[in-house]
Amino acid sequence: MTDASARNTGSSWRTLARAGRFLGMPLLLAASLAATIAVHPDFGSFEIQSLALGALPLALAAAAQAIVVISGGIDLSIGSMIAVSNVLSASLMQHATFSQSLALSIVVLIAGAGQGLLNGLVVAFSRIPDVVATLTTGFIWGGVALLILERPGGGAPAAYLNIGAGADFWPWLPNALVMMIVAIAAIWLPIRLSRIGLLIYAAGSDPVAAFRSGVDVMRARTIAYVFSGIACAVGGMALTMTTGIGAPLAGAYYTLSSVAAVVIGGVSLAGGRGGMVGPVIAALLLTLAPMVLVFLGIDPNYGQVIQGTLIVMVVMIAGFFAFLQERK
């Protein structure tokens, strides 16, 4: 109240930081696409389609991770849950018709919600730290995936596999991108627009203050895990669509990549801060980067080093903006 001038300088920093938070990710995506076209002029609507399709499972994994991280936890069983949904859908739908496979999708969604619920209950009741609890449940889900389908196989009707392929609306708007936006909006908006979202953000931001305000923190976090499980189920089915089969070990990539997407996407690992747009764009970027490296003809082994370096740099820049925002 007394230090008006100091406050003004502080708030201009904060405005800059906020602008960086809202516009940073879309600008980064636009810049990356521009750079891609610069190095690879043939990059067109077909490449956009394969980018969206390739990013679909990771985008859902990132969404799943973002919900849990916002609630103050972290989910290291995401890869295994995606694997379970992947093999479950591929083995159930192998000989099904298209309409049957749509009905079976609901079974997979319920199974995913169940896994998430179990994760949440273990975290809430055992009071084991999230990292440990979900690492161990991840082992269990990984075993379950192997029980359902011992080796890669299974399948789904062609019509089902082709839901995400092509671009029915406009060549530059791939079906996979529409599906990504619709699926994530269907999971996220009911949270964000209802009291549940408030509880999840509160539980992640300051559990003690939330508890004292009358929030059941453990229930809020359990709900976050349930939604995470549902998003993983969609991610697993998307993986079936992109690969055409179920593979019990295919999920491993998604656990840590989802954490990377969440961090790049501006969700604070401390909980309570961030949204859904950032992690989803980050998933697109994480899928685009290896494509560009292939266009450039870089050895895939170097590619991984470069990709890791890029992640560190993006996170450092995000950390710099967060630092600006902390300054008062």
Binding site: R195, L198, L199, Y201, A202, S205, A209, R212, S213, V215
Partner: peptide, 23 residues
Amino acid sequence: VSVYQDPAIVPDLTVAQNMRLAR
């Protein structure tokens, strides 16, 4: 209802959201 020494206000929510939190 108690008002504690450290306010039971969740830092990442807006003031209005904090009010909704406590209904």
